[in-house]
């Protein structure tokens, strides 16, 4: 899918950097690849590798990962009314949700394009797993991804997606409020919570327009 091409390139590179980090954290290449193939959520996986790599407790790693991924509860609930078919089919559509596929398939009126959700997911999933394998298996041969500015590419991609979603003043208000909530909470709460709390900004949608 053409629309997901820039994301696929960034996701491969991000996967490589996760693989490198997992290797540095002594996770083992197989575990790192299985992690990407099952959890498939970059920020949670980075947090887990960082915590385990620095000798942190398993329970802290799992808690951080669950917190970081809990935003998918809200995303999945938002997609749900747009889904049809059997339970298995709906579950598979739910599994297609990652930040990028969710945002790209949002139509902007509260509904979601199922085909686009799956199409983007089918592009990004192999990109993520492949990138992880490259990073975890080749390791030291690859330089520091941060030197390439990769960590700035993702927020930039999400910023561009956000701007494309701002169709009414209410959307703008929700974005400003959500961003402000997240920023205020960064120093006060564990990673992940600022994003969940920011979803409260969506309640602004209930205001009469």
């Amino acid at each position: 899918m053409r629309i997901s091409a820039p994301f696929a390139v960034a996701v491969v590179a991000f996967g490589v950097s996760f693989g490198v980090l997992a290797r540095a954290a002594d996770m083992g290449a197989t575990a790192a690849i299985v992690f990407s193939a099952t959890t498939w959520a970059g920020s949670a996986q980075f947090a887990v590798a960082a915590i385990l790599g620095s000798g942190g407790a398993v329970v802290s790693a799992i808690t951080a990962g669950v917190l970081l991924n809990s935003r998918y509860l809200a995303m999945s609930a938002a997609v749900a009314p747009s889904l049809v078919g059997s339970r298995l089919r709906r579950a598979l559509h739910g599994l297609a949700i990652v930040d990028e596929s969710w945002a790209l398939s949002a139509r902007g009126d509260g509904t979601f394009d199922r085909d686009k959700l799956v199409g983007v997911a089918l592009t990004l999933y192999p990109a993520w797993v492949l990138g992880t394998a490259i990073g975890a298996l080749s390791g030291d041969a690859i330089g520091d991804p941060e030197a390439l500015g990769l960590d700035a590419a993702f927020p930039a991609l999400f910023f561009a997606l956000m701007v494309s979603q701002l169709r009414t003043r209410q959307h703008v208000s929700a974005a400003v409020l959500g961003g402000a909530i997240a920023l205020i909470l960064i120093p006060l709460t564990p990673a992940g919570l600022p994003i969940i709390a920011a979803s409260a900004a969506a309640l602004i949608g209930l205001r009469a327009r």
Binding site: P155, F158, P194, A202, L203
Partner: peptide
Amino acid sequence: TQVFETLAPALLAALVVTQTF
């Protein structure tokens, strides 16, 4: 539906902010 409509900009803004700062 109204909440889901504003959820996308709110969550995307939060992702931008947390990944940037």
